[in-house]
Nucleic acid binder design. Sequence first.
DNA 1: GTAGATGATGCGGGATCCAGCAAGACGCGC
DNA 2: GCGCGTCTTGCTGGATCCCGCATCATCTAC
Lengths: 240, 240
Amino acid sequence: MKVLIVEDDPLHRSYLHEAVSAALPECETVIEAENGTMGEKLARDHRSAHVVMDLQMNNRNGIEAARTIWKERPDTRILFWSNYSDEAYVRGVSRIVPDGAAYGYVLKSASDERLKLALRSIFVEAQCVIDREVRGMQQKSLGQAKGFSDSEYEILIDIALGLTDRAIARRRGLSLRSVQNRLQQLYEKLDVYQNASDDHEDSRFNLRARAVTVAMLRKLLNYSALERAESELAEWLKLG
Amino acid sequence: MKVLIVEDDPLHRSYLHEAVSAALPECETVIEAENGTMGEKLARDHRSAHVVMDLQMNNRNGIEAARTIWKERPDTRILFWSNYSDEAYVRGVSRIVPDGAAYGYVLKSASDERLKLALRSIFVEAQCVIDREVRGMQQKSLGQAKGFSDSEYEILIDIALGLTDRAIARRRGLSLRSVQNRLQQLYEKLDVYQNASDDHEDSRFNLRARAVTVAMLRKLLNYSALERAESELAEWLKLG
DNA sequence: GTAGATGATGCGGGATCCAGCAAGACGCGC
DNA sequence: GCGCGTCTTGCTGGATCCCGCATCATCTAC
């Protein structure tokens, strides 16, 4: 068995190396990559089907790297090892995992024991292992209990990118009014109206900009989600 | 000499501990805190005047912690040790450093040697040590060459928070038109007009929202800056 | 002292955003 | 068929935003 480690922090990288060696005696080779781009290349070269991947990296983030790796080999098993359980990350990961693929999501704050257990479960038993905390996020996100539907998330992305209503309508194939409807839903759910007092003269928020900030503060959005959305937008602009 | 380490990542914390011990034989005690809140408390309890501080922490970020530490003892020497040289961080730090205080800013990607040198320079020699890359950011930021003036940065924060023009005017003590003038300057500098084609029917951006996103992508803003701005805003709202 | 640069303010207008109201489309259960 | 809920769309209007044009104050340079 070969295991590929993709992680930009040298300390974390060597810690992972050690953990992999200890948890998986049957692993004869450990390869290290220090950013997403190198990770993709090494995965291709070594035909490695077992990857441990950091999400937040400078050069090319983990979600991007995982996506191209899975596109080339959908049966690759990937364990995401991240500092955060932001909804933006969790959502980003679940969007790209292929049907039936074994993967995992473990927080860096987990104990040695948990990490090693996850390594064995995924790489040997082909089971999915999702950290408790992350799991909670996932359910809150997918279940519509208090979470956000895909369409609401979509429009959140669009206003975060700074598109006008009309541009959003064209991009998503909707009428102008429908876009504005969804915006209202979004404002509702993000609870943007709180400090908008009745008096017109009182301090009030620009709902559109406020929504983005509130989403950021609630970690529905983060830098890497923005980055991804921005490059998708550039792609779409080229076509149009 | 006592040295206080404030860093939430256990691996980094123990690495720092070792580096401090090696670089400063005259240091008889090393204290560790795993978040900003604990850092403030331990600095107070131990009267430690030598601090190594991570910037990005969950509970209470480094800038906040440093601010309260410096407020209580302005002669404290603090070395910031961070993954990033985002303009938002650099600006945040330079806003809070007291006159004449010795401090440093070293990136985590720096070599062992650089870190140890910085530790000695700051804690023993009371000199300021700013990483090359960070320094560049600082000059780009303070010099008005291509950087942002304080007033532009201020208004960027305000629209990022989602305030209306009127609210900004009241908060900053300006007329409505002046606020809009500054916004135009900001849009100019952020180069938000690029994809706004001449035809009114073509895809265009909502300048206000777009400006915030561009600033995020350029790292003029980041999560912790937003967080700080949000709590300042809450403060201001209470008074008003 | 005069000219020029910079910044604050007012006025006006076109574009955009926010939202209430109502009419139609679609699926679902009975 | 019929009712119900959800989603989409058009119309409308008021509020806000974006910005060109013009005025005035302050400051600097020569």
